[in-house]
């Protein structure tokens, strides 16, 4: 790696001023796990890194709002999110997903903001956050805006977050009667990046309402499988519906081949894992 200017602004406002939208060699730094790999391989040679380590309490906290909404600062470490009592209690699917994301050491350092901004299509959390209807708060020179996690990533390592903007926090609406689950498949070692991840969620009033089925890792970016969603909406889960939902999902999913599997193999995985994720969500307790 080559030397660079490292700054640690004491507030979000100062951090924003230190970004240079027209210079790709200036980047925010969170846990650094993704940036370090890019710097070590020589792919990224920064001129300046703006560490968000001291950029204020708002980026560092996890809390439940009075209306039940979960608010997670961008600098919250994935391990802190995994172990937070309010997350374990009210959003078990998040803790469950994090438990199999990378390894303990990465989760001890990597942050939620870095995870989302990096926008690696193999990331585990985006499908789950999309299924739960989460939003991100972005801050920039012209103020703040909220964007849904759905649509945040626009392609491989690309997002709608502009060069002069920072992710401040993520907000997740209360689960209420929503059931949710995440099922992933790693085709190499247990801690490898997933070949595919499926997040599902729906409101349960006896039948399936407002379902979301989101596919990650096997596609260019996390993608809702809307034909499969339409198929299960208003129904109750049974074996036949699981099979048909899996088939519909495999049919519509625009999967890409990589070292973790061919297109036909991943289509088969989609079929199996959509059914698994739906079954897991259906079996788990709906939040009270």
């Amino acid at each position: 790696m080559t030397p660079f200017d490292l700054v640690e602004p004491p507030s979000l406002g100062e951090a924003l001023k230190l970004l240079e939208p027209d210079d790709s060699a200036v980047r925010p730094l969170a846990g650094g796990t993704a940036l370090m790999l890019l710097m070590k391989s020589g792919f990224f040679r920064p001129k300046r890194l703006v560490s968000l380590r001291a950029a204020g309490e708002r980026l560092a906290r996890i809390r439940i709002e009075p209306n039940g909404e979960l608010r997670i600062g961008a600098m919250v470490r994935l391990a802190a999110l995994e172990w937070a009592p309010e997350v374990r209690r009210d959003f078990p699917v998040i803790g469950h997903t994090l438990r199999t994301l990378a390894n303990v050491r990465v989760r001890n350092v990597a942050t939620l903001g870095g995870h989302l901004a990096h926008a690696d299509p193999h990331s585990d959390l985006p499908p789950v956050l999309i299924a739960l209807g989460a939003c991100l708060v972005l801050a920039g020179p012209r103020g703040e805006r909220a964007v849904p996690v759905e649509g945040f990533a626009t392609g491989h390592y690309e997002t709608v977050c502009k060069g002069d903007e920072l992710i401040v926090e993520a907000t997740i609406p209360p689960l209420g009667r929503r059931r949710a689950a995440y099922a992933k498949c790693t085709t190499r070692s247990a801690d490898d990046w997933p070949a595919l991840g499926i997040a599902v969620a729906w409101d349960d009033d006896g039948a399936i309402r407002s379902p979301r089925i989101v596919l990650g890792a096997a596609t260019e970016r996390p993608t809702r499988l809307k034909a499969a969603e339409a198929l299960i909406a208003g129904r109750t889960l049974d074996g036949a519906l699981l099979t048909r939902a899996g088939e519909a999902a495999a049919e519509e999913a625009d999967v890409v081949a990589d070292a973790r599997g061919s297109v036909s193999y991943k289509k088969q995985l989609v079929k199996v894992y959509v059914a698994r994720a739906l079954r897991a969500a259906g079996a788990g307790p709906a939040a009270p």
Binding site: L6, G32, T33, M36, L37, R105, V106, N108, V109
Partner: peptide, 11 residues
């Protein structure tokens, strides 16, 4: 907390 020293900036 355990970390990978190879991915952790000394700074």
């Amino acid at each position: 907390h355990a970390v990978s020293g190879c991915l952790f900036l000394a700074a």
